[in-house]
């Protein structure tokens, strides 16, 4: 059984159908990427999984358990954490407070302390700036903070929405390196990206979305070699 199973999901914004029967699955330990253009339904898919919007049809399950029975704030207890699009840090809380908020649903003080150390090893920059207000961090640091905050919930599945958005190429590479690090320490990752080039380098498998439907589904390597993907998403003629 796959860790995450999304089955024939339909979702609407008012009358506009954003998802027209999406089915994806993510196995434990994988990095899976959803690529596609603006408005293809990538973020919507993540929002359905995380409970921020309800699907009209279809099912989402984690470890065989139906996620749609939970409200958005309960999803984190099921082991799903999200790094939202545009980072979504709490900009008036300090770095420390942001991380504490990440562990909001946990009670194990010792474990939380350990995870503080853990994310500070992963992102030494954050340790330097631990008392600084989140909104005064640079874009790259805010991305680190958003990721670290999500890790503080000890997720089994990490949802990442466009982590490379608005960052300079050097920093984008950093982001993807950490992503591989996090994955190698046992966290499964579902990654939504417009930067198909980078996403397909780190992912095991990928799905290509177009206007609310999955048009391709293959290993990352095969997708990199796919003619249509090369032309449309990688800019190779």
């Amino acid at each position: 059984m796959a860790l995450l199973e999304v089955n024939e999901v339909h979702a609407y914004y008012g009358n506009i159908q954003a998802l027209k029967g999406i089915s994806i699955h993510v196995e434990k330990g994988e990095i899976v990427t959803l690529i596609g253009a603006n408005g293809a339904g990538k973020t919507t898919t993540l929002r359905v999984i995380s409970g921020l919007i309800k699907s009209s049809q279809g099912s989402v399950s984690l470890n065989g358990e139906d996620l749609s029975q939970y409200q958005a704030h309960e999803i984190v207890n099921q082991g799903v954490a999200m790094v939202p699009e545009g980072r979504g840090i709490f900009s008036k809380l300090s770095v420390n407070e942001n991380l504490e908020m990440g562990a909001y649903s946990r009670n194990d003080k010792a474990g939380i302390q350990e995870d503080f150390e853990h994310v500070f090893t992963l992102f030494p920059k954050l340790k330097e700036r631990r008392n600084q207000i989140g909104g005064t961090l640079s874009g790259g640091e805010q991305q680190m903070l958003a990721t670290a905050r999500a890790l503080m919930a000890q997720p089994t599945l990490l949802l990442m929405d466009e982590p490379s958005m608005g960052l300079a190429p050097v920093l984008v590479e950093n982001v993807f390196e950490t992503l591989v690090d996090i994955n190698s320490q046992g966290t499964t990752i579902l990654l939504v990206e417009q930067n198909a080039h980078m996403a397909l380098q780190v992912a095991n498998r990928g799905y290509v979305l177009q206007t609310g439907e999955i048009v391709l589904d293959d290993s990352a390597e095969a997708l990199r070699k796919n003619e249509m993907v090369q032309k449309v998403y990688l800019g190779i003629d």
């Binding site: 921020l52 958005a72 704030h73 709490f90 900009s91 908020m101």
Partner: peptide, 13 residues
């Protein structure tokens, strides 16, 4: 600060 992010960390908004 961010309603969606608050929900994602478990705040019952």
């Amino acid at each position: 600060e961010d309603e969606d992010a608050a929900q994602m960390v478990g705040v019952n908004t």
